[in-house]
Amino acid sequence: MLGPRVTMTEGQGLPVIQSDDPRYLLHLENKKRNVFVTQLGEGREDEAEEITCIPVIREPASTILDTSKNTLQKTLVLKKEVEFDDVSVQFLAKRQEFRERMEMAELRKSALATKQQDNSDKVHKFEQFVKDNNAKRRNAMQKYQVEVKQNEIKKRELEELTEELEVLKVRKKKLQKKISKYKTYEDYLIKLLYNLPENYLEPGIDAPLKAIITRHETLASTNQSLIDNLIALVDKQESSQRALATLQREHDTAKLMMNSELSQLYKNYDKIQDKNKQLEMNSNLSKGHFRYQSVGLAQLFLAVTNLAEQCYMHHYGPLEEVTLMSKLDMIKEYILEKMQVLQISRKLTERHPSVSVPKSQTQKSRAASIK
């Protein structure tokens, strides 16, 4: 069997397989093997010697070569060399593919570096553009703020001038009304001036016109003094009204403070009343408890007095003059004495069983000890 041969040429990426390599020649020997026959065939033994049996192989060649006992070492080596050549071809192909991919990666890297440089230039230009825009925006904002302030100032001035113009218009109307009102007097005075003689103002000339003028001057000065008094009185009235308003505010403030203090005093009064009620209830409870205690003490004193009468000893003096503590001591001494007598009687009975203590006496001693 003739196998391919792999050769490498410089300048080429893939190897070339040659078919005349003796290493890839596979020699198989025709060997006879026994055939198992399931039918009777007499007289076929001679024919079987001339028959060459070819086995039917259903397993792959690699499995047969690896597992067969009749496979030659040379064949296995040849198989491994073929596998090695295949792997070498694949390796060289992968290497060539890796080189091509590296070249593509280098090209992409250079393109990416160029693109990054372009992007960095664009970013730098954009940042410069943003800085310029920010500077322009700041300048525009400053200019806008200055213009807004100037507009506000101009608006205030315009409002003031408008108010002043309105006031002047009102004054003009008033003056026009006055002019129209005193126009008749003006006309009368002008006619009068035309009709007056030329020397009416010379001294020494007594004319009725001079008296009229003097009277008019007197009335004018009186009118002016009255107007001044009226203005002074108006100012005084306004100051009095302001003082009255101030006093009213102070009065309202003082009234509020007094009301708050009064409400606080009412609260304190209510608290004191509640406290007094609680104290009164506690006092009543304590009185009832004290009364109960006094009754208990009286009963206790009476019981102590009765016991003292039963346990009276002469060396304590008259019973009426003995104090409470002395009565208790007397009762104690009496009980101890009775107990000693009882103990002595018991000892006597234990020593002399024939001597018996009267039953009435033992009962009395027991009753005395219990008391």
Rank of each mutant, 00 (worst) to 15 (best):
G3W: 05
P4G: 10
G13V: 10
P15I: 00
I17E: 02
I17P: 01
Y24M: 09
N34V: 12
V35P: 02
T38H: 08
A48F: 11
I51Q: 02
I54F: 11
I57T: 02
P60F: 03
A61R: 03
L65C: 08
D66K: 13
T67E: 06
S68N: 04
T71E: 02
L78G: 06
V82L: 05
E83C: 01
E83M: 12
V89E: 11
F91C: 13
E97D: 13
R101H: 07
M102I: 10
E106W: 04
E106M: 07
E106K: 07
K109F: 05
S110A: 14
K115A: 03
Q117D: 01
S120G: 00
D121T: 08
F126W: 03
K131E: 15
D132T: 15
R137E: 10
R138K: 12
R138A: 14
K143F: 10
V148I: 12
K149N: 10
Q150I: 04
E152A: 09
K155E: 09
E159F: 01
E159H: 00
T162S: 11
E164G: 11
E166G: 04
V167W: 07
V170L: 03
L175C: 05
L175Y: 08
Q176W: 05
K183R: 15
T184Y: 11
E186W: 14
L189G: 02
L189Y: 12
I190H: 09
L192E: 04
L192G: 03
L192Y: 05
L192N: 06
Y194E: 13
N199K: 13
Y200Q: 03
L201M: 12
E202S: 15
I205K: 12
T214I: 11
L219R: 13
L219T: 00
L230T: 10
I231G: 01
V234W: 01
Q241G: 00
T246V: 07
H251T: 03
M258E: 06
S263L: 07
S263C: 01
N276K: 00
K277L: 11
Q278T: 14
S283A: 11
N284M: 05
L285P: 00
H289P: 02
H289E: 15
R291E: 15
Q293D: 13
V295Y: 11
G296C: 14
A298C: 13
V304G: 02
Q310R: 15
Y312Q: 01
Y316P: 05
P318M: 06
V322F: 02
L324C: 08
L324H: 10
L328N: 08
K338D: 11
M339A: 14
V341I: 15
S345F: 03
H352T: 07
H352M: 03
P358E: 08
Q361W: 06
S365F: 09
S369C: 14
